[in-house]
Design a protein around this nucleic acid. Structure first.
Lengths: 237, 237
DNA sequence: CAGTGGTCTAGACCACGGT
DNA sequence: CCGTGGTCTAGACCACTGG
């Protein structure tokens, strides 16, 4: 039963979700415990089973509980919350810092995929690719050096895009849908070129993000983004 | 109506979600376009509106479409997919690489929070904290150096935990619930101590992850994890 | 086999936000 | 105001899986 808080607490699936979450956090239902069934909870909260179902489903998506048919709903022993990293447009990142964005195209060439790239993307060697290097600035301070390879077969329009004006990052995100992406983070030492572009001293540590994206099974692009010294990527859970 | 594909073709909210997704990816509904209303789609697919609702809600959670009352559902101009980063236990990371996990406690001391820590966590200066440093190895090769500060007030039991056996990482995850966490990634140069513990040459670039966690408004812990040279953190979208 | 979650339905009412 | 999404309901059947 338990009348549900009328105004602020509200009724509905959020009330159920929050109350269940509270009981888990306060260890009324400790890690590993099995929750009552949906029907029982529905009876307790005086709502339909579908409402409880949605509440529990969301807790499951959050990684708080684990659900299995027949055996029921259990509190996960390790609360497996997850951070979310959106794919962003560099320009937006910069503008979000209240800085003026500037973009420079450094080089642009069409070549065949070198062996390492072919194997990274799963392309035939020599497959035509567009190789682009460019810089992103925030208030005229170096922000990010971007090096990118694009599978021309997957994105034929890229060869006629005006990459002097709009960054390949933004052009691709606006133009090409992708179904799958893989991202990796690492620390690298500045070589002479990176040091030059990013105003870093050679050998100093730089944060790098690499991303490959695919459309279905077709590789689209590999991008290597190296940030200015001291950069931090931050996100919340 | 739509005769019901029995097994593989399926009917249901997944069928609707996938079909709508397909139409978006194939530009039948290009970025910015407004989709038919839930009722119209329900009629087209021969299902209840609630089914369409769930399909569209999930697409919205995926960042594919944007929904607003009265104005309807629109295809987002920038597909804003998100990567997910789970909070992991180092031991599991190592074991997932088929390596033997070893853990060493390097130092453990109870002190007052120094100013920089107090301000990072929002604690009063001098608040009692536990300071722990330890190493994680994979097959006897250095894997991660962990330095951690724990707010004793938030986790009194930590002072009696046997941190020589189980890492503070694992102990905390198993013991303390948290409601909020902030993570940041960066690249740092190995100082002499890090170089020593991680078998790196001094000055070489190392990947670092920092995480602060809170329970409600109460700060719980700040951890600084520095990885061996060449480490990459990888995740998928 | 039987219990539990997973999903669907047809209908209803509500809340928000353009017009 | 009133159209659109947001949510709830009561009931039903299905799918998976543990015993």
């Amino acid at each position: 039963m338990s009348v549900i808080e009328p105004t602020t607490g509200k009724t509905g699936y959020l009330a159920v979700r929050n109350e269940v979450f509270r009981r888990i956090q306060t260890r009324i239902w400790p890690p590993g415990a099995t929750l009552p069934t949906e029907s029982e909870l529905a009876a307790e909260f005086g709502c339909a089973r579908a409402t409880v179902n949605r509440a529990l489903r969301e807790l499951s998506e959050m990684g708080i509980v684990e659900r299995r048919r027949k055996s029921g709903t259990r509190v996960k022993t390790l609360p497996a919350k997850q951070a979310r990293l959106p794919i962003t447009i560099v320009r937006h990142e910069v503008e979000a810092r209240n800085a003026a964005y500037r973009y420079d195209l450094i080089s642009r060439s069409e070549t065949g995929a070198p062996p390492w790239l072919a194997s990274r993307l799963g392309l035939p060697q020599g497959q035509p690719v567009l190789h682009v290097r460019c810089m992103h600035y925030a208030d005229s301070a170096p922000y990010q050096f971007e090096e990118r390879w694009v599978n021309i077969e997957a994105v034929p329009d890229i060869v006629s895009a005006d990459l002097a004006t709009i960054g390949p990052n933004e052009w691709l995100l606006r133009t090409v849908p992708f179904t799958q992406a893989e991202v990796s983070f690492s620390a690298v030492a500045a070589d002479t070129e990176l040091a030059n572009f990013l105003s870093a001293t050679p050998g100093s540590p730089l944060f790098r993000m690499e991303r490959t994206t695919r459309l279905g099974t077709q590789p689209v692009t590999l991008v290597r983004m190296t940030y200015h010294p001291g950069y931090r990527l931050t996100t919340s859970y």
